[in-house]
Simulated scan of single mutants.
Amino acid sequence: MSQATFTTSLTIGELEANYALYCKAMRILVLEEKTIHQIRRSVCWHRLECLHQSLPRQYKNPEHLYFLLQRDSNS
């Protein structure tokens, strides 16, 4: 499998503006029962990770979000 590549880099403002979209994409992947390994290769994971690395106090690690979404989908 190939790694996701990006032709344009997004600004932090653009990433923040689409945060809800990345969370929704992650929720869909969790509901589709994708493994964490598969989700780690997704664009939404990389964008959430970028936000977390840039603004760690505002945005949680995507792994934390993954486990929260997985817990919610199991209940």
Rank of each mutant, 00 (worst) to 15 (best):
M1V: 15
S2V: 09
S2P: 08
Q3V: 13
Q3H: 13
T5G: 08
T5K: 13
F6N: 06
T7K: 13
T7R: 10
T8S: 14
T8K: 12
T8G: 08
S9T: 10
L10Y: 06
L10S: 09
T11M: 04
T11Q: 01
L15Y: 00
E16D: 05
E16N: 02
E16K: 06
A17T: 06
N18C: 06
N18E: 15
Y19D: 04
Y19S: 00
A20S: 10
L21Q: 08
C23G: 07
A25Q: 10
A25V: 15
M26D: 00
M26W: 01
M26Y: 06
R27V: 13
I28C: 09
L29W: 15
V30N: 04
V30F: 01
V30H: 01
L31V: 10
L31M: 14
E32G: 05
K34W: 14
K34H: 11
T35P: 00
T35C: 02
T35H: 02
I36L: 15
Q38V: 05
I39T: 14
I39K: 03
R40D: 04
R40P: 05
R41F: 06
R41C: 10
S42N: 00
S42W: 00
S42Y: 03
V43Y: 05
C44I: 05
W45G: 01
W45Q: 00
H46M: 09
L48C: 01
L48A: 02
L48W: 04
E49K: 09
E49H: 12
E49F: 11
E49R: 08
C50V: 08
C50L: 13
C50T: 10
L51A: 01
Q53T: 05
Q53G: 07
S54W: 03
S54F: 02
L55V: 02
L55N: 06
L55C: 06
R57Q: 09
Q58G: 01
Y59T: 02
Y59M: 01
Y59E: 04
N61G: 02
N61E: 11
N61L: 05
P62V: 01
P62G: 04
E63R: 09
H64S: 10
H64R: 09
H64G: 11
Y66V: 02
Y66A: 03
L68S: 14
R71M: 10
D72Q: 11
D72Y: 14
N74S: 13
N74M: 14
S75H: 12
S75E: 14
